[in-house]
Design a protein around this nucleic acid. Structure first.
Lengths: 193, 193
DNA sequence: TCTCCTATGTTGCTTAGTCAACAAAAGTTT
DNA sequence: AAACTTTTGTTGACTAAGCAACATAGGAGA
């Protein structure tokens, strides 16, 4: 059904948590496509009908789960509540890189199949974050294009790194990557704090 | 209100768990009479009105909590699913002794004030357990009196031990206590399995 | 192929939990 | 003592979760 539940309602928060937690645990145990909606609801001890009130299907749950996890990485580094600086940008690139390898190791072998999902979620959020940063510098031109360029560059560099056979040390790699991305943003940075 | 909720309903189980867990955590932190119903519901993240649907007040919660904990001790030793033997009786006495000291150490200093509650709950459950045991031996006389005598004896001996300045080793104490209690029950034990 | 079985969505009705507002009790402060 | 703040129970209207039943879709196996 998906008739928009109220995110502030404690009951809604609770059941979402139960679903998310159970799903994470199941993902650690077995492959995504062997996980059924029933598995999730049984583990969460909620009714199956309740699941469908929250998510369209298990793919929507996976989508949400990935989005959630990346958002947490962003928030744990407070990147969502700061403004553009080269250092923060560096931290953002680093976050994307780490997230990639984390997914490849934490869950089972199943990751290849939903890497397009991951790409979509990461890029959406990086883009939104960069937009916020750019808009805080009240620049004369539109923020969309620089944000887009930087987003794709960041994601591309991160997946290039995470896919490399002999990965160079993350810190040194990010040092190299930073100027390639920052060139799109630095031009506005004079107005920043 | 307390309009009997359905114990089988997952929602009911969940909120009870939330309440119990929060209460336990609060009890570990501070004294019982400084704990408010609000504290519990805030920690449990449930509505205050919901609390009152489950418990009359915080005293009823305390009552329930103690009952619950002792029942768990009984069940973890499978005493609820067996029959009378001197060894099982020994285990029961031991359980009561351990429960007494556990309460005195685990929670804060507050225990003295609700020791009558503890006494009531322990005795009720020991009595019910002994009744079940006695009835399994289909004895010719009524089970109530031997069960009562044994219950009081067990509780008395356990609190005497737990209150002693220099407590003797539990095992040896129980060895001494066992015959004093068993004398009420052994006479029927010939019929037992 | 046909059957069996399991997972999926969906539905109408019931029950539990939320919320806000209230009056009244119990502590606190001054 | 009076004025205050906090906590307590209780209420009624609303929303989410549970349940059982259904039709359907897909796989697995004879």
């Amino acid at each position: 059904m998906l008739s928009k539940l109220n995110d502030q309602d404690p009951r809604v928060r609770r059941t979402r948590q139960l679903i998310e937690r159970s799903f994470d645990e199941l993902l650690a145990e077995k492959n995504f496509d062997t996980i059924t909606v029933q598995d999730v609801t049984e583990k969460a001890q909620i009714n199956r009908a309740t699941f469908y009130a929250h998510f369209e299907d298990k793919y929507a749950l996976l989508d949400h789960s990935i989005r959630q996890k990346f958002r947490q990485e962003i928030e744990s580094r407070v990147l969502n509540a700061c403004h553009y600086t080269p250092e923060n940008l560096r931290m953002l690139i680093l976050t994307v890189c780490e997230f990639q390898v984390k997914l490849n190791t934490s869950c089972a072998q199943s990751q290849k199949q939903f890497s397009p999902l991951v790409e979509k979620q990461i890029k959406e959020q990086v883009y939104e974050l960069l937009l916020v940063w750019l808009r805080k510098m009240n620049i004369p031109v539109s923020a969309e294009m620089p944000a887009t360029a930087a987003t794709w560059a960041i994601y591309g560099l991160a997946s290039y790194w995470s896919a490399s056979k002999n990965r160079p040390a993350l810190e040194t790699y990010v040092d190299e990557a930073l100027p390639l991305v920052a060139v799109n943003l630095n031009q506005f940075a004079t107005e920043a704090v």
